[in-house]
Nucleic acid binder design. Structure first.
Length: 575
RNA sequence: CGGGGUGUAGCGCAGCCUGGUAGCGCACAUGGUUUGGGACCAUGCUGUCGGAGGUUCAAAUCCCCCCACCCCGACCA
């Protein structure tokens, strides 16, 4: 393509709308333009990237035996009511009504639709296993869209659904998808880490996420992993082993109520009493589907609401409002404690079992209790793991090494759905033994648009994007320093046409601009390889070949450009 | 949904406090000079000042309502 004939609206300044680097670069380099909050136009360069990623995804999915289909975006509400996700997914669903006031949904995922589809067609185990996938725009009514394509309301996704007759067969299907996913991201130039994740509103037995590790603000997810074994999980799922309490049987001093005027937060209280936060137990009131409960956790830990939600099997879990807190504890927020607390279930974190003589609120304004002990002073209704793991704790799998954390961008996920949807929609088949059984399902997603942005978040420098070769919008950019110069112009077109004949994707910057503009724009849009055609080198019949990733420059003879480009591209691709 | 902020030319912004001619830079157009890292000269074009209502002789500016967008939080298949 010639630049003058392509729609590449680059910006000289950083867009103010963008916060993280990948979002800024995609806007600035002319890849995307916002239409509304969380809704984007994909411009020619972006579309080329998306097509490349999609192509890789297709090839790997097909290789894994999946078949491409295309399902409707528009879906009847009844399907979602049948699976109960009309309720559980609730506000994330993009809902609408047609002229007859019938409820419709813009699909955010297709478990219901695909299950409905196969239930009429799959009757025998002989037709299994089956894996159907599609690449399509998805809709989610995000509470707060942000970070460009990272959390948008309409986005491009590959979703696949597997159907198996039994667990053994399902395991094979699931493994095939995992292998395909590693292959997909690797071919996109991205290293991914697979982590255990919560199943969330998707339901089912277990789930995994594929993370691109970044060290920028774009990494929205925190993952925990062990270097000694293969344990890896996201923060919602991660657990840990706390070293056994050294002085569990330690002192048990007399329970005391002491004044803590205006001290409400963990920091204030522990600072005032001069004890570490780990000696305090915070009591946090929650409302779960209308019922109030108290969650207890060590002062320096954080409640993991996903774990709590799962334990309670609740749909809506939120912190209780100040009025409720006042009503239950008899004190304002900041003085809640378990001793003498009536009318709510007490759910304690496992770690509490290791604590003695701790500090809690006294359920009275401006007072806390010290030397509080379990059993002696109060009892828990439930003891569970309800906190986030912390870096440095022991790995729950091998018990040998300490957990580390990293920030990641989720680009893919896989769910072991079991029979959740087949049961809800009554999708059965007749097995070998003549019995009617529910299909065992899995679902598998790759965020195409998000993968593209993750690549930018992962690969960029102060000048712009550095696309991995396999997903770059073009492989080569031809840059004549001065297009007005007849010789440069002639050489540029000769090389451009030659590369095109060699089936390379090449962009010719034929704009009548200063060299600086073209260099800067070239760096910004991140084409892996630049061929610079300038006066000085052309006199010696040389062309300058420059890589985007490390600014390596070599001079090659004009006649050998084609071979040299192929060679360098191959080398870059291997990286 | 709660808190904070912004909305003026295609983009980035000033003007608003203290009401009275709507401005700057970039971009764009024409002509000319330039061309190895965001050129220069000259001329020119570009506006429902987010929307509706109110106060006033007079509103971008003051008051009220609404909308959109951004940031923090809650949320996140």
């Amino acid at each position: 393509m010639k630049w003058t004939e392509t729609y590449i609206p680059t910006l000289r300044e950083d867009p103010t709308e963008a916060e993280i680097v990948s979002h800024r670069l995609l806007v600035r380099a002319g890849f995307i333009r916002k239409l509304a909050a969380g809704v984007y136009n994909y411009l020619p360069l972006m579309q080329r990237v998306l097509l490349k990623i999609s192509r890789i995804v297709r090839e790997e999915m097909n290789r894994a035996g999946a078949q491409e289909i295309l399902m409707p975006v528009l879906q009847p509400a009844e399907l979602w009511q049948t699976s109960n996700r009309w309720e559980t997914v609730g506000k994330e669903l993009m809902k609408m009504k047609d002229r007859h006031l019938r409820d419709l949904v813009l699909g955010g995922t297709h478990e219901e639709v695909v299950t409905f589809l196969v239930r009429g067609e799959i009757r025998s185990y002989r037709q299994l296993p089956l894996n159907l996938y599609q690449i399509q725009n998805k809709f989610r009514d995000e509470i707060r869209p942000r970070f460009g394509l990272m959390r948008s309301r309409e986005f491009l996704m590959k979703d696949a659904y597997s159907f198996d007759a039994n667990e053994e067969s399902f395991k094979i299907s699931y493994k095939k998808m995992i292998d395909a996913y590693f292959g997909i991201f690797k071919r996109c130039g991205l290293d991914t880490k697979m982590v255990e994740s919560d199943t969330g509103a998707m339901g089912g037995k277990a789930a995994h996420e594929f993370m691109v590790i970044v060290n920028t603000d774009g990494g929205e997810n925190i993952i925990f992993f062990c270097d000694n074994c293969d344990y890896a999980a996201n923060i919602e799922k991660a657990t840990s082993i706390e070293p056994a309490a050294q002085e569990k049987a330690g002192s048990r001093n007399r329970l005391q109520k002491i004044p803590t005027p205006q001290m409400k937060t963990v920091e204030e209280v522990t600072g005032f009493l001069n004890v570490p936060a780990s000696k305090l137990v915070k009591t946090i009131l929650y409302t779960a589907d209308g019922k109030t409960l108290a969650a207890l956790i060590r002062g320096d830990r954080q409640i993991n609401e996903t774990k709590l939600k799962n334990i309670l099997k609740s749909i809506n879990l939120e912190m209780a409002d100040p009025l409720t807190v006042q009503k239950i504890t008899g004190a304002e927020v900041g003085y809640a404690g378990p001793v003498g607390l009536k009318g709510v279930k007490l759910i304690g974190d496992k770690e509490l079992l290791l604590m003695t003589d701790f500090v809690t609120g006294a359920n009275e304004d401006n007072y806390h209790l010290i030397n509080v002990n379990l059993e002696r002073d109060f009892e828990l209704d439930l003891v569970e793991d309800i906190r986030n793991a912390s870096p440095g704790e022991l790995c729950p799998q091998c018990h040998k090494d300490r957990l580390k954390t990293a920030k990641g961008i989720e680009v893919g996920n896989t769910f072991m759905l079991g029979t959740k949807y087949s049961r809800a929609l009554n999708a059965t088949f007749i097995d070998e033994d003549g019995q009617e059984k529910f299909l065992i399902m899995g679902s598998y997603g790759v965020g195409i648009t998000r993968t593209a942005q993750a690549a930018v978040e992962r690969f960029h420098d102060s000048s712009g994007i550095i696309w991995p070769v396999p997903i770059a919008p073009f492989s080569v950019e031809v840059l004549p320093v001065n297009i007005q110069d007849e010789k440069q112009r002639e050489a540029a077109f000769e090389i451009y046409n030659g590369l095109k004949d060699n089936k390379l994707e090449v962009l010719l910057d034929d704009r009548n601009e200063h060299a600086g503009v073209k260099f800067n724009d070239g760096d910004l849009i991140g084409i892996p390889l630049k061929l610079i055609i300038g006066d000085k080198n052309l006199k010696d019949n040389k062309i300058e070949l420059k890589t985007r990733c490390n600014n390596e420059t070599i001079l090659v003879d004009r006649g050998e450009v084609q071979e040299e480009v192929t060679k360098v591209l191959r080398k870059l691709d291997k990286k």
